[in-house]
Write a protein that binds this DNA or RNA. Structure first.
Lengths: 137, 137
DNA sequence: CTAAGGATTGACGTCAGCGTCAAGGCAACC
DNA sequence: GGTTGCCTTGACGCTGACGTCAATCCTTAG
């Protein structure tokens, strides 16, 4: 199958697939006319990548999984490197949760003290961003 | 005081201060030689911006607070708009916490099933990114 | 006089993961 | 042979909050 069909079946875009290839995550033989030719295994591979991204892994984090599948394993997480990524990412997520909890506390505290000071706050016209004197975005 | 001192006292960099100015958050009169001239109120203002960023607000979110201080209020969160930002951000943080919790569950599940399948996973040499055929980064 | 240490503006780089556009080639159908 | 649809590569855009570099100016101390 060609790149468009793979994209549809895997639930992504051709642009993403070409990007994965540029990052070395996906390789495809070319037909005589230069078109990429994919098989069923690629559908699974892309599916694995997307699933991993859904649980918070970066594209770079999926490398070990891809390598594991290429090495002939049934699943991408049959290899030590992949497990390691799981554990590292879990630690990162936990750290993020903690940090975000602190952020939440800070926000709640600020909100509470603001409300305590002024049961009925005032209103100020508004402050739109100026015509942006260079430093273009 | 000039921009370097303000940066030191507020705990940031001159680049950040100039950026804030380009975004309309900070305004300073100029001396005869073109140097920006700041006063004590700017130290407080920049401090407010940094504190707000620390609790998760984007620069854009700090606009109402800056406007509130400019309007002569003691604190940046004495105005209705600021309170609104607090509440909106709190909702965002809660949503993020929920989502991150789900990500965590997904990770834990994947880790568990991978470990269940293979108490002693294999090892694969490694898959370094290729020489990057265009799509440069 | 010169060197050092700030200050100024402008412009490009960074990180992730693609989106979007452009110009053109290939294949099939009417 | 013209249209449609899919494919190719290349290149720039986007988000946020600045970092970094370059070229030049101002002030002060030695």
């Amino acid at each position: 199958m060609r790149i468009g069909e793979l994209a549809r079946r895997a639930g992504t875009t051709t642009r993403a697939l070409r990007f994965y290839e540029s990052q070395g995550l996906l390789t495809a033989p070319r037909a005589a006319n230069g078109y990429r030719e994919y098989g069923e295994e690629h559908v699974r591979l892309v599916g694995e990548i997307l699933t991993l991204q859904a649980v918070g892994l970066s594209l770079d984090d999926t490398r070990p999984f891809v390598g594991c599948l290429r090495a002939g394993h049934e699943t991408g997480d049959s290899c030590a490197d992949s497990i390691e990524v799981y554990e590292r990412k879990l630690a990162e997520v936990d750290a993020l949760l903690t940090q975000l909890g602190e952020v939440r506390s800070g926000l709640v505290a600020k909100l509470a003290s603001a409300l305590a000071r002024r049961p009925l706050p005032c209103v100020v016209p508004g402050s739109a961003p100026p015509p942006n004197e260079q430093e273009s975005r």
